[in-house]
Design a protein around this nucleic acid. Structure first.
Lengths: 221, 221
DNA sequence: ACCTGAACACCGTTCAAGT
DNA sequence: ACCTGAACACCGTTCAAGT
């Protein structure tokens, strides 16, 4: 019956979340998950179609930890709350940014979040199709920033968490080839001073400003 | 000697590119690559540290197909040219968007492209650190749009390339649960009418408008 | 309804040994 | 300098069979 199956699936997802937290996305294999549940790995396939569906469920479970924005807020404020919450939760779970970027948001919770973003753009006066497009841009932009921040915070090789590691590029390892990239070289020093919070705020403002501007222009016609 | 090794590596990368084109990123395994080169798979590890380095080289080889923007253009026009070229080339190679999104841009060609973007922001009057941040936002935003467009164009299950497939979400499979997502539902029809070219242009304009606005504001102080 | 056993068809990588 | 042979430690998934 439906309730039993739901419980078993939740159990599965819970164990998968633990695996993710402990060893990252690479450690989240069907075989390891089965082992943790004291079961043979083929047993998983009764509860879940395949690994992809499992990852989707895990992503949705993480998404469930995000607070939905108060409905009284203005559209832009609502989008900002969504953004901050998105970042807070994703940065709080190991490899969650990668999981969200790789996985298409089909789960109910992620869809609801998407719907909330679209509704904000609709309330700002945009037509339906445009609102969905904007929500898509918004989502990808947030994921990009958060993915980058996560890479910075948890460098793959943690032997040297070099402070000059910047925005996806190891500026320190440029070496003598740095002459080919004068502008990157020039920024190497100042980049370490930028705080992640400020960077996120800056990107968010830039994008929302651009979106607002477009809306104002459309309104004037 | 260096030249020999360079040739062998190029040979490797060339074969990897073919594999990618034929079967996508999933088909690009070290063992298949070795087979194509009529060699045992451990042989690859003399030419390349590991698979990650190989993927980085493949990405850089794809990047090499992009034209660098004419240096005479104004900053914004240069960024637009970069964006259009980025999209053109990535959409032209199977799974290239995914490859670029997953792989940190460490190759010389990708670094040069990054450098070009940073230089445009510098020429627009931004300080070094901010220019690099903007280039990072710019890159991630482009990748997001292109990734989405690629998902639309080459749906994973090509059994039903349903026209209502939209922005990462199968609107058609909402079914009766659609009542929970009224705004998504509302947009389902109009989304199919949006042309990819226009969508890309719109997103690009929105972001660059936002960036321009920020710069104008900073200039006034 | 839920799980096991056995198997299939793969992976990336290492390392001593060959030439 | 460049490659092979053999091995290690894994993968996701299927399918008949058990209970």
């Amino acid at each position: 019956m439906g309730s039993r199956i739901g419980l078993a699936r939740d159990h599965l997802v819970q164990a998968a979340l633990e695996l993710l937290e402990e060893g990252g996305i690479a450690a989240l294999s069907t075989r390891r998950l089965a082992e943790r549940l004291h079961v043979q790995s083929p047993a998983l396939y009764w509860h879940v179609r395949n690994k992809d569906e499992l990852l989707g469920l895990v992503a949705d479970a993480i998404c469930a930890r995000m607070a939905t924005p108060p409905s009284g807020l203005a559209p832009r404020a609502r989008l900002e709350r969504i953004a901050v919450e998105y970042r807070r939760v994703l940065m709080g779970h190991r490899d969650a940014p990668r999981l969200f970027a790789e996985q298409v948001p089909t789960g109910p919770c992620r869809m609801l979040l998407y719907e909330a973003a679209v509704s904000a753009f609709r309330d700002a006066g945009m037509p339906p199709g445009e609102a969905v497009s904007m929500a898509s841009f918004f989502r990808h932009f947030l994921l990009g920033m958060i993915l980058e921040e996560a890479r910075q915070a948890h460098p793959p090789r943690l032997g040297a968490p070099s402070p000059t590691l910047a925005l996806g590029i190891e500026l320190s390892q440029l070496g003598d080839a740095a002459t080919a990239y004068p502008n990157l070289r020039e920024a190497a020093g100042t980049l370490a001073a930028l705080k992640p919070d400020d960077l996120f705020r800056m990107g968010l403002d830039v994008l929302l400003d651009g979106m607002e501007l477009r809306f104002l222009r459309a309104e004037r016609t």
